[in-house]
Write a protein that binds this DNA or RNA. Structure first.
Length: 475
RNA sequence: GGCGCCAUCGUCUAGUGGUUAGGACCCAGGAUUUUCAUUCCUGUAACCGGAGUUCGAUUCUCCGUGGCGCUACCA
């Protein structure tokens, strides 16, 4: 049975890199008829953020991938929040202590800090100096009795090597002598990532650990833990990192990294997921647009590539535009209604009409207000190019003629608008692009936009006249 | 500093011991659209460097170089 997990820390929001990790875990589980588990890794009390778990789950729900087991949907391996599993970790630390694969360490933070400082220029030795590794049982007992605060460290082998077989990277070897005696239980009684992770993955029967490359270096420690416990090691797959434009690890400073940021900006989950899918994996053919179902079918862990990839927003914009255009009007309206300006008194039908005019020019839903303003706005500002048209020789002529002819019409339709322009042409002798552009600027104040006859219909007679008169004033 | 991972157009990537090194985004040009956008067509643009193996290396090996990650009582 394939079981994968996504195990984020609740530090405030879901990182897009985390979302890709979740996606790959999900896809791999689903295509193997396995289970995808969500586990919250909140072992660092200092970094705890209120509401972060809810936020994480909300972002994940939005993305469309659903956990088979997790804090919301309980399964047989709960609890799924690490802070609720403290007893379990304690028990397993005791096992290691018992077997002398771990030992209490009483080194103070001051001592550790000094140690580190003394090493900063010294190239021979780094990391913990195993100071407490060989304390006698009596010494340990007396220190504990004295109430000295301590952590538990893993006793790593001094020689030999650990070999990891990674699905993405192949065989990776680490010399044991470089392994630090890692802290596995903190003085506050919480486990560190390394211990909690291994214990949970085992207890939750995770078969494949699919996570970011930043974990590759600590995998030997995890492997050691599995061995010490006498457990079967899961398969590992370390994914390439997502990078900033400058190739550093994707970070907040250089743009949006939170999934909620993209939600707010009007990106569609389909687009984000499709984009993320192709950042580090490709199907080996030219197919680019994937539904979640197609992803499940095509995805292959073995074809995940090894090098980090830059999070290129332009490609994301393109995907988003593609998906926006793929919706029918009702479907698109459903997800974009919230982006329409609130104070307009527009009916749903009118908003839909506007949407149909601007659908193909959107790359994010956030652009809706600006695009819609072309039709909705009462205050029009003319830029220089626009003014050139209405202030040209024929500008006034056309606008005045247009106003006169429109005011004679009962109603404006996109279908009779052409006839109206014909009349204007006959009266003013202005024609072609010049004529149409003056009309466009007169009605919208802009030199670009959707089809002008449809805009005219949407505006209606009164508003058209008002705008033309305003243009005349500015001419 | 040490250890580990990585290296094809600007970006995401395909691919191969012999290829005109393919696709997508971006950019440029064209067609359609009396505008723009969309759509379609065309174009610009890449195998990090040096050795070795080989008849032949972008591809295999080694060494550099560069980038990134880890090196916490953070994950």
């Amino acid at each position: 049975m394939v079981r994968t997990r996504f195990a984020p820390s609740p530090t405030g929001y879901l990182h897009v890199g985390g979302l890709r990790t979740a996606l790959y875990n999900y896809l791999f589980a689903k295509q193997n008829n396995g289970k995808f588990v969500l586990r919250i890794e909140d072992t660092d009390q200092k970094r705890k953020v209120d509401g972060a778990v809810e936020n994480l789950i909300e972002s994940l729900n939005w993305s469309g991938i659903e956990a088979d087991e997790g804090p919301v949907k309980q399964g047989d391996f709960g609890p799924y929040i690490q802070s609720e599993r403290l007893e379990l970790y304690k028990k397993h630390v005791d096992i290691l202590l018992e077997k002398e694969h771990a030992y209490p360490c009483f080194c103070t933070r001051e001592r550790l800090k000094k140690l580190k400082e003394s090493q900063s220029d010294d190239s021979t030795q780094f990391g913990y100096d195993n100071h407490c590794r060989n304390l006698s049982r009596a010494e340990v007992m007396s220190k504990i009795k004295n109430g000295e605060s301590y952590v538990v460290r893993l006793k790593t082998p001094l020689e030999g090597e650990v070999v990891i077989y990674d699905i993405v990277r192949g065989k990776v070897t680490f010399p044991n002598e470089l392994l630090d005696d890692q802290v596995i239980l903190k003085s506050d009684g919480f486990p560190t990532y390394h211990l909690a992770n291994v214990v949970d993955d085992h207890l939750m029967e995770i078969s494949h650990v699919i996570r970011g490359e930043e974990w590759l270096s600590s995998t030997p420690k995890h492997k050691l833990l599995y061995d010490y416990f006498g457990w079967k090691t899961p398969k590992f797959a370390h994914l390439p990192l997502l990078l900033n434009q400058d190739k550093s690890k994707l970070s907040k400073r250089q743009g949006d990294v939170a999934v909620e940021d993209y939600m707010e900006k009007g990106y569609l989950p389909e687009a984000i997921m499709n984009f993320l899918l192709l950042l580090g994996w490709n199907p080996g053919n030219n197919k680019e647009i994937f539904s979640l179902k197609e992803m499940v079918k095509s995805f292959s862990l073995k074809k995940v590539n090894k090098s980090g990839s830059i999070f290129n927003i332009e490609k994301l914009n393109w995907f988003n535009g593609q998906y926006i255009r793929s919706y029918d009007l009702d479907g698109l309206y459903k997800i974009s209604a919230a982006y329409f300006p609130k104070n307009t008194n527009l009916s749903e039908n009118e908003e839909k009409k506007i949407l149909s005019l601007i659908q193909e020019r959107l790359s994010t839903l956030q652009q809706i207000p600006k695009q819609a303003a072309l039709i909705l706005s009462d205050s029009i500002e003319y830029n220089k190019d626009a003014l050139d048209y209405i202030r040209s020789e024929s500008g006034m002529l056309v606008l005045k003629s247009l106003a006169k002819i429109i005011s004679c019409e009962d109603e404006l339709h996109s279908s009779n608008f052409f006839q109206i322009i014909k009349k204007v042409q006959a009266e003013t002798l202005v024609k072609g692009k010049q004529l149409w552009m003056i009309v466009r600027v007169g009605l919208t104040g802009e030199i670009h936009g959707p089809e002008i006859n449809k805009i005219a219909e949407l505006l209606g007679k009164e508003k058209c006249l008002a705008r033309i008169n305003q243009a005349i004033k500015n001419g």
